[in-house]
Write a protein that binds this DNA or RNA. Structure first.
Length: 634
RNA sequence: GGACCCGUGGUGUAGCGGCCCAACAUGCCAGCCUGUCACGCUGGAGAUCGCCGGUUCGAAUCCGGUCGGGUCCGCCA
């Protein structure tokens, strides 16, 4: 997908129309063709490479659109030649001359402009350049990422980075087109707002006009878009910047971009239907070369996804589903009687014994097995049982001797395993078992190369549980979004065992309620999530109460939206998709940093601007601020 | 908050207790070259091995700390 894998064309970044001619140039460096033979032209750009033959100098001139070879001949243009010998890599120059078809046999098929060259009449140095700290003209060079970030403006000159940003621009453009074509209105919402609890820590901005108070940066425009629905906007979208003060990962930055949208008078099917159509159109417009694996997108019940893939964002480009060993291990009376105590005891205690089958890994080395076991333990498993399938169907492994031939055969059947395969089994609580096997599945899928890297495999996961029990605070916590609606048939469950909403218990019926919550996953990443909201103020209050908010806290934190809902809120629902993740997946990058112009490091630094920094005295004064308890640094 | 990995001329790597005041490639500088396109040839400059401290007769190499970057857990949707 990326430049490093395809070097037939250098800088085929953009085939867009040329910009208007300017005093510096008549054409771009990606534009000239045989048809221009004999024409006068001016080009301007950066010196990609210079080849000096003494009396003859070649300069590869580069801009965003491509590379054109400039020839400077001392015999034809002595002054230009003299300048050309002084030119160095990354100098900014302007060249005037005549376009000429190259001599037969000297054409360069690697350049789109490779059939012609610009024979210079004059060469002007617009700006000199220091020797760059890394290679700009070598697409295969590996460069330390912190160096790239420190000199991001140079990194952006590199083909791979440039094409990713151009692709991202196409992505956002396609999003806007599809939404406008479907009657959506793009509305901007403020970035200086009030804290809206969404689980993550807020970034805080102190107010100068009201010392002692702060704004919060939005974690998402969630409440604002719902208020737009109350405002009758009907169909809203925004390319919204969001801020969350949490620790970073390859797919998480403190500020990131979401496609945020909301629709009125809809149910789950309407919203998912539109989003699916939109996602398909946007994918085809942005990366037409990448096939979408299945349309319509597969839809999984949350419970089902966890059961089959051990994940709420399954990568379904390959199978290797988890399987249940409980039926296999049951004795004639239905009680666990495999003979292997760990399995039997786990099942008797209400846990799960499940496995996955790694095709062709039956010959895995001791070292590989240890690695996988270590992997499983890191995610909470107490151990990992491995069984390799021998030629006669017999299972080999440390615990194989506990299993009768009948049990072995049944296990092989459940696993769908054949000769040479490796069966991996985890016995633990349902949560741990699924989680560990789900992670193993992704890990092994990667090792075995089971996923087609070209495919885009979207799927839906919906009907998440409404709440998770928060033992520490003794309350129900919204699994996703505190505004998510409950599926109509579960509405009566939004109550407590005691019937008194003030008294909450882990066994409350509310724990069984399913949300009208849908996530969309792409190739094993969570691309986005949304829900049909609770629009009935009474029901919303009930839900908030289950989540442990008192009436006062609700007023304090959700006052605007609760009040708004008393003035007639339409049924509404929406979704938010991570643009950075989408772009990273479209360009097969492992981190969203690769599709952001100026990302931050894991510790939240901008290595180029050297942010964050200490405020100056005046800022402290104006804001009435003082840092206390900050360790001396720097 | 925690675990792990990385840090050597401009860049990417090698060296992993004395053979190293550090090697290779590329870049850079100078000279030569009229058809190259990762041009070629000749010559040259350039790092005390992130930083601080320790162990040792001796440290780029071992240990501790620290700073920076990354991956992951927690956190986060």
């Amino acid at each position: 997908m990326d430049g490093s894998q395809n070097r037939t064309l250098e800088f085929p970044v953009s085939a867009q129309p040329a910009p208007l001619a300017t005093p510096y140039r008549t054409h771009t460096c990606g534009q000239l063709r045989v048809d221009d033979d004999g024409a006068d032209a001016r080009l301007a750009g950066w010196v990609h490479r210079r080849r000096d033959y003494g009396k003859l100098v070649f300069i590869d001139l580069r801009d965003r659109y491509g590379i054109t070879q400039v020839v400077v001949d001392a015999a034809d243009a002595p002054e230009a030649h003299e300048t050309a010998t002084r030119v160095r890599s990354e100098f900014v120059i302007a060249v005037e001359g005549v376009v000429a078809r190259r001599q037969p046999g000297t054409e360069n098929a690697k350049l789109e402009t490779g059939a012609v060259e610009l024979q210079a009449r004059s060469v002007r140095i617009l700006n000199e350049a220091k020797t760059p700290p890394f290679y700009i003209n070598d697409p295969d060079a590996t460069i330390d990422e912190s160096l790239r970030l420190r000199y991001r403006y140079l990194d952006i000159r590199r083909e791979a980075m440039l094409r990713r940003l151009v692709m991202r621009s196409r992505l956002v453009h396609a999003i806007r087109e599809v939404h406008h074509a479907n009657g959506f209105v793009e509305v901007e919402t403020p970035n200086l707002i009030k804290s809206t609890p969404e689980g993550a820590r807020d970034f805080i901005v102190p107010s100068r006009l009201q010392p002692g108070t702060v704004y919060a940066l939005p974690q998402s425009p969630q409440q604002l878009k719902q208020l737009l629905m109350v405002g009758g906007m009907d169909r809203y979208f925004q390319i919204a910047r969001c801020f969350r003060d949490e620790d970073m990962r390859g797919d998480r930055q403190p500020e990131f971009t979401q496609l945020d949208l909301e629709m009125s008078f809809v149910d789950e099917a309407t919203v998912m239907g539109f989003i699916e159509k939109m996602v398909i159109e946007v994918s085809r417009a942005t990366v037409p070369e990448r096939p979408i694996r299945s349309i319509p997108f597969p839809v999984f019940e949350y419970d089902d996804a966890m059961e089959r893939y051990g994940s709420d964002k399954p990568d379904i480009r390959f199978g290797m589903e988890l399987f249940d060993l409980a039926p296999v291990l049951a004795g004639p009376d239905g009680h666990p009687a495999s003979g292997f105590r760990v399995f039997d005891e786990t099942l008797a205690a209400g846990g799960r014994v499940k496995g996955i089958c790694a095709p062709g890994m039956g010959g895995a080395s001791r070292r590989e097995i240890d690695e996988l076991t270590e992997f499983a333990k890191r995610f909470g498993a107490r151990g990992l049982v491995h069984l390799s399938v021998q030629a006669g169907g017999e299972l080999h492994g440390p615990i194989a001797k506990f299993l009768s031939p009948e049990t072995q055969a049944a296990a092989r059947g459940a696993a769908g395993a054949g000769e040479g395969d490796l069966i991996l089994v985890v016995a633990d609580t349902a949560g741990t078992t699924n989680d560990v096997l789900g992670r193993l599945r992704v890990e092994l899928g990667g090792r075995l190369g089971l996923a087609n890297p070209d495919e885009l495999s979207y799927c839906w996961i919906h009907h998440f549980p409404m709440y998770q029990w928060d033992a520490e605070h003794h309350r129900w916590d919204a699994t996703h979004n505190p505004f998510s609606g409950v599926v109509p048939e579960d509405e009566p469950l939004l109550t407590t065992t005691s019937g008194d909403l003030g008294v909450r218990d882990e066994g409350d019926p509310a724990g069984r309620a399913k949300a009208m919550q849908y996530d969309i996953a792409l190739n094993g990443w969570e691309l986005g999530g949304g829900s049909v909201r609770i629009w009935d103020p009474q029901l919303l209050a009930r839900s908030f109460n289950l989540q442990g908010y008192t009436v006062e806290q609700m007023r304090e934190r959700f006052g605007a939206i609760l009040e708004a809902f008393e003035y007639g809120a339409p049924p509404h629902g929406g979704i938010a998709l991570g643009i950075d993740r989408w772009a990273a997946l479209f360009s097969n990058q492992a981190t969203i940093r690769e599709v952001m112009a100026f990302p931050k490091t894991q510790s939240g630094s901008d290595l180029m601007l050297e942010a964050p920094s200490t405020p100056d005295d005046e800022q402290y004064q104006e804001l009435g601020l003082r840092f206390v308890g900050v360790p001396e640094k720097r």
